[in-house]
């Protein structure tokens, strides 16, 4: 393959005001690239697989950073680094699952600059796509990963539609479990949407991972107190314990009452193009005690509907086992 690793020519904007950033985002739209920690940016550019004309560095905008308590929960600026999230007392006291998930992202150096927003909107790691092939996700007409002999160990079990890539984000699973709200701005104003709706699959958005439209900036994440201090479980299984993306990860928040499950939210990473919420498991658990039988059934329900590819059927038992572990914890 032709191989590159030097940053190509690109303009750089470093706005300090929110309005300037929104204006730049609007002006450049698809031609602009919003820059957070940049850890999923430079590779694309160096490879010349994505060619924006301008980088819009959001790191100088203080309004996009920080973690603060609100009357209904907390709000996290999208440009807050994972390092800050891992170390933040508010998060550790109330939403520890997020700190835990953030702590399993990539490597320390990447967590030091990687932002929550960047981690959420990072692109999929499908190796075919990353090679710059003209696949569905790159605007083309075929999927290399879902073909008779393709090497697709890391690919999706659920909700694939032509593209079989998976969501790589560890924090996304935690935030969907916490029923977070995403705050999105553009020059016309704000909109908010649930984390679950924010992540979009290939059936609707085959060339993007989130509902973020050109010109829009994800500026914050709101966590309501609904799930604060709930019992939680997070686990990520990856080949290596540094750098590697989840083969399967699980995030669970659960409320129990009188030995039965009152409510829960359970989300798997690495099995679908979005964080995969286990709605049926949640419904099944409601009102049930967490007996071994219930847990075993829940695990079976979790993997219902999985469609395997050549190399990824191991994800079914892995996912089932993680569901069990989460519920037993």
């Amino acid at each position: 393959m032709p191989s590159y690793d030097v940053m190509p020519e690109v303009q750089l904007y470093q706005p300090t005001e929110v309005d300037d950033a929104l204006n730049l985002a609007e002006k450049f739209r698809q031609q602009g690239w919003l820059l957070g920690g940049g850890q999923d940016t430079y590779g694309w550019l160096k490879d010349r697989a994505k060619n924006p004309t301008a980088l819009i560095d959001l790191n100088d905008i203080e309004a996009f950073k920080g973690i603060k308590a609100t009357s209904t929960g907390i709000e996290i600026g999208a440009l807050t680094t994972l390092r800050d999230i891992i170390r933040n007392p508010l998060i550790n006291d109330h939403f520890e699952i997020l700190a835990k998930a953030a702590g399993r992202v990539a490597s320390p150096q990447i967590r030091n600059v990687g932002t929550l927003g960047g981690n959420l909107i990072q692109d999929t790691r499908c190796w075919y796509y990353r090679r710059g092939l003209a696949c569905y996700r790159a605007g083309g007409n075929l999927c290399y990963a879902d073909s008779p002999e393709a090497m697709n160990r890391e690919h999706a079990l659920f909700n694939a539609s032509r593209c079989v890539a998976v969501s790589p984000s560890d924090t996304a699973t935690a935030l969907v479990a916490l029923n977070a709200t995403m705050v999105i701005k553009n020059i016309d104003g704000d909109r908010e949407m649930s984390a679950e709706d924010f992540f979009v699959g290939p059936d609707t958005h085959i060339t993007q991972m989130t509902a973020l439209e050109p010109g829009e900036i994800l500026t914050g994440i709101k966590l309501s107190n609904e799930w604060s201090n709930a019992r939680y479980y997070f686990e990520k299984i990856a080949d290596r314990d540094v750098w590697d993306f989840a083969l399967v990860s699980i995030a669970l928040v659960i409320k129990e009452e009188a030995n039965t499950v009152k409510d829960s939210r359970m989300v798997c990473g690495g099995v679908a193009c979005t964080p995969y919420r286990l709605n049926k498991v949640e419904q099944y658990l409601k009102g049930n005690p967490l007996s071994e039988k219930i847990i075993t059934n829940a695990a079976k329900i979790a993997s219902q509907g999985a469609e395997t590819l050549n190399y990824n059927h191991f994800k079914i038992p892995l996912m089932e086992n993680l569901v069990k572990r989460a519920l037993r914890s």
């Binding site: 075919y128 002999e149 090497m151």
Partner: peptide, 9 residues
């Protein structure tokens, strides 16, 4: 390697 196109993963 993908046997279909020889690409290294």
């Amino acid at each position: 390697f993908d046997p279909q196109n020889g690409l290294p993963a």
